Simulated scan of single mutants.
Amino acid sequence: MLRNQLSLSLDLALLALPAVLAEARNLKVRVSVSIVDASGQLIHLAHMDGAPAPSRDIALDKAWTATGFGVATSAWEERLAGMPASVRDGLLQRPRLAMFGGGVPVKVEGAVVGAIGVSGATAEQDEQCAQAGVDAILAALNQA
């Protein structure tokens, strides 16, 4: 499904979505899910009934940030703490950067091929849901 591509496909996004939603239901939370390709472009968005309206945009920002930097958005808390205030403040004022948990990159052989962003619950729960989707994608690729 991805062998000759360097980016997630719609088929893989549609495979990840049920895993994300199942984890959200397991946690009893309502979330929005954004799945982006290697360039951070939206492939698929889902918004659970009852999820906060702003979570749509936040989920996309988390996925975009995870793809752009190639690290989970939860890693930014520690990274920001070690930066000079001027750099930290500059980053935090950038539009679209989401530097709290819920965005997880999808990496294949070390290359970022996309990401999943989740928003609507706590940062930890959002990340747990996103990771479930990433795990579903990687499991499918390992079986191919």
Rank of each mutant, 00 (worst) to 15 (best):
A22K: 08
F100A: 10
V113N: 02
S32R: 00
V71S: 10
V104E: 10
A121H: 08
A136Q: 02
D11T: 11
N4P: 05
M99I: 14
G50Y: 12
A22S: 09
K62G: 09
L60P: 06
L80N: 07
L97V: 07
Q143N: 06
L42V: 02
A136M: 06
A123K: 04
G101C: 05
A46W: 09
V87L: 09
T67Y: 00
G70R: 07
S86A: 12
V104Y: 03
T65D: 10
F100G: 04
R79A: 13
S119N: 05
T67K: 04
S9W: 00
A85E: 15
P52R: 15
A111V: 14
G133A: 03
Q41G: 06
H44Q: 11
G110R: 05
G82D: 11
E23H: 02
E78R: 15
N4C: 08
A19E: 02
R94V: 12
K62C: 04
R94Q: 14
G90F: 01
L17Q: 07
V134C: 00
Q125K: 10
D61C: 12
M99D: 04
L15G: 00
A136F: 05
L6F: 14
V33Q: 05
G50C: 13
A75V: 12
D49V: 15
P18V: 01
G70P: 09
M1E: 14
Q131T: 13
Q5C: 07
G70N: 06
R30F: 08
D37F: 01
S9F: 01
N4V: 10
A38G: 09
L14N: 10
P84C: 03
A132K: 03
D89F: 00
A72Q: 13
G133T: 10
M48D: 11
G70A: 04
A81K: 11
A123T: 10
P52Q: 15
D37H: 03
V108R: 08
G90L: 02
V87M: 09
A72T: 14
P84Q: 10
L60D: 12
I137K: 02
G82Q: 09
R94H: 08
L138P: 01
V104W: 06
A38H: 11
L10P: 03
Q5T: 14
I43W: 02
